[in-house]
Design a protein around this nucleic acid. Sequence first.
DNA 1: AACTAGGCT
DNA 2: GTATAAGCCTAGTTG
Length: 394
Amino acid sequence: MPLLAEMEMNGVLLDRALLNEMSSSIGADMLRLETEIYNAVGHDFNINSSQQLATVLFAELGLQSGRKTQSGYSTDATVLEALADAHPVIKFILEYRQLSKLKSTYTDALPMLVNPRTGRIHTSFNQTGTTTGRLSSSEPNLQNIPIRGELGSKIRQAIIAQPGWLLLSADYSQIDLRALAHISQDAELIATFQRDEDVHTHTASEVFGVPDSEVTPKMRRAAKTINFGVIYGMSGYGLQQATDLTREEAELFISTYFSRYPGIKSYIEDTKKQAAKLGYVQTVLGRRRYIPEINSTNRLAREAAERMAINMPVQGTSADIIKIAMVELHRQMIKRDMKTRMTLQVHDELVFEVLPGELEAIKQLVQDIMPNAMKLIVPLKIDIKVGKNWGDMS
DNA sequence: AACTAGGCT
DNA sequence: GTATAAGCCTAGTTG
């Protein structure tokens, strides 16, 4: 029996042959990279050890060390990327790291978690594991299956429907920013969604002072970073780190953003004040998160608490919305005695394993229920895709 | 068990 | 002077 705090859903099927083949080919690539790395460095060492790697890079090769961790110099991807032109071994290490992650966490691990009785993977969806109201997923975590890059997308293709069936994915479009528009009541952000515009393009247009039609990909990318950054309480420094802007440009970018979206600025200020006064913040539905550190005399601790306070109502409201949709969808599927099953939730996305004869019915249900799960001041939109696996859908 | 790193939304 | 973007889970290394 699962704990009350877990949902045991139907499980998903794996293309084991695909994963097997990927494990082998990744393993072969890693061996090649290993040799390249040892040659470039002049000796063997454990590439998986960040400690040993730091010694090699910063003490032996004399590369410029950067950020420090608690125990020494960081060798994470942002540090290595900055060193990519300084020594040929860096690119090999970055590639090795990527392959190592995908192999150990996914292509090797997933097949071992197939239940011999059902032939499926049964993750646990933990309902009490987060501070914001999101679900989490474990053993295995099916909420962090790779999607980026050729290999990532290939791993996702290994999550398949049973023969003759289909997977349907329905994801909310920009749900966090729509929740933010609702909570903050910012006029400009509300108008963007009411006009059904591309939110990142529109932010770029506002901040750079050009028409939407003249927003370049680079401008849109910067706007996207700030749109997400705002939800997380990002600083000028943080924006600078995440983009190729200078510190001054980043500061200006943020202050311009707040002048164009004054409701967002007030939301952030009001939320910090409310949290300090009450000791908690809450979602639209009243789900609370207590944040005792909000009044800490330690500035770092207090500022971290402020960012949590800013983020929780947004992330938590999105979680409330998709949970309502899940409950209602489940009810309606039972009522219609459908064979189609809800199989995964990934924060703003639901995945169903669909009997083809029920495809139109489930599409209709999803389209009726998800956008109407909660009435916000802006519309909720979803995108629906269908395919034989989770990797290529249209 | 703590730490580092990296996968996802 | 210092650190600086929310929420998770898993794997490998180290002591």
